[in-house]
Design a protein around this nucleic acid. Sequence first.
DNA 1: GGCTCATATTTCACTGGTGAATTAAAAAGG
DNA 2: CCTTTTTAATTCACCAGTGAAATATGAGCC
Lengths: 174, 174
Amino acid sequence: MATLGNCIGMMDEGIRRLSDALPELPVDKAKLSRLMLMVGGRVQEELEHTLKPHRLNHSEFLTLMILYSSPDGSSTPGELCDYTSQGATNMTRIGNALVTRGLVVRSASEEDRRRVRIGITPNGRRFVQKMLPTLFPRLSAMFDGFGESDRRQFGRLLRKLADNLDRLDEGTGR
Amino acid sequence: MATLGNCIGMMDEGIRRLSDALPELPVDKAKLSRLMLMVGGRVQEELEHTLKPHRLNHSEFLTLMILYSSPDGSSTPGELCDYTSQGATNMTRIGNALVTRGLVVRSASEEDRRRVRIGITPNGRRFVQKMLPTLFPRLSAMFDGFGESDRRQFGRLLRKLADNLDRLDEGTGR
DNA sequence: GGCTCATATTTCACTGGTGAATTAAAAAGG
DNA sequence: CCTTTTTAATTCACCAGTGAAATATGAGCC
């Protein structure tokens, strides 16, 4: 038990039973949404598992990567919230965690004194350069057997789903 | 900002910049994994958003649905942990939450006195019957424009990714 | 210039989830 | 049998993330 395969089997069976009693249930779509939740969750577990030895969690890693790959190596909490889809509260915690480890520094912005600049340190850059390649093997294994065409299709479908979700949020104000 | 579309654009750009300096980065796969994380997360937010008025979170909803769709309407914490991929600790909390609302009841198992049976109540069934259909409209909208062939492809690719993840876990003991 | 409103960040209290230890009962092995 | 090991559920202490309020600065407007 506890493999994704088993969970997916249970899900298929459960939705089948549900749909017997509830014919208006959109079976395919329900299955796809469950698949997204289950597989997406497992991808995240996988990532956090390989991140753990480096004592980073997903959101800290993402924040650091954004700083690393940004042209001038710095940003502000507000921007980072947008890019990472994290709340401001959590970004304060992330900043604290990264500052404590010497991977980034905070400094007061001079144009706008409400703002704080967060910049990656030389130390932080070295850390990323060492840590990042350790993610590649498992990342590659995750998509073993995905040919050129599968990858293109998968990307297309995920982006299409993303568009729909954006349209859904528009309505609700979000 | 904060739309998935924008986040995805940033991601594409960031990975492009990364790959300039790091040619061994598996660009396609990195993008697909980021897409899974971003879109999967948003699907979950979407679900929890429509669940909120019913005062359920994702794991409580899933647990209740499993009980609802199980042949005899009951299970045990241990089984529910497997099916929902939740830890035992959290299943205790979920049980407490659902019991408090009168949607399920706990009872001692007679064959094995270590076990606890958790069963959905008539009240719980009525609750599901009322609540479940309110999820359909947004669920359908999520996959607007996904034709028969897109749905089949998407399902195939997600299941394939799930297989790979199971194989990855095997190695690590998980 | 001074008042009001908006924006950026942080603090605080809380929810949801996890790992380690605890309790209790079943199963296994002389 | 009786000891040891395994399994099931819970409790406890903690980590990650959120919403509401606090703080401080900038912007818009008579």
